[in-house]
Amino acid sequence: MSLKSELHTHVASLRRYALVLTRDPVAADDLVQETLVKAIAKADTFQHGTDLRPWLFRILHNTHISDLRRAKTRADAAADLPDPLARDCQHTQLELKQVLGALDQLPEAQRMPIILVALREMSYAEAARTLDVPLGTFMSRLGRGRAALRRIVQGVASGKLTLMQRKEGDA
């Protein structure tokens, strides 16, 4: 694969990752642009033979973390799903809101491993390199994140069930 086509593939992946991180197509493209600008500035220090994908993802990851720190808080964009998703059926939208909403409640350290693995484009080792953490730490965060995600979603589901039962009782 030529460098150009390899880079094109990675940029498409960056857009996917950024979209899930930001939950906003415009903010996602801004994040990818900022990442590419930084990558261009750092290109002279890129080590020949280094894997390009983790390098780019690491820049995006660090840029995103910096943006979050600057903003102090993550934008509350739970309802602003990307347009293509909004056209999906209501059931899918609800599932999407539920899972992404639960994902938003996780600390970044757990959220990012889950997203990186869900992209299905990297091995655990590559994803760990992207986040600049040892593989063991990555696995630990992924596991804890998944467990926490499950608890949150189950909590939301049982809360909805209680609410429905209460409404039925009221009627």
Binding site: L7, V20, I40, P84, V99, L100, I115
Partner: peptide
């Protein structure tokens, strides 16, 4: 299930319109 939902959300980026600024930066980086 979580993985599939997140993967689907990520893949929706592929349906986003091309971004000319990103394409230009991509060429420059290449």
């Amino acid at each position: 299930h979580f993985d599939n939902v997140i993967h689907g959300a990520a893949r929706s980026a592929d349906a986003q319109p091309a971004n000319l600024r990103i394409e230009a930066l991509e060429r420059q980086l290449a």
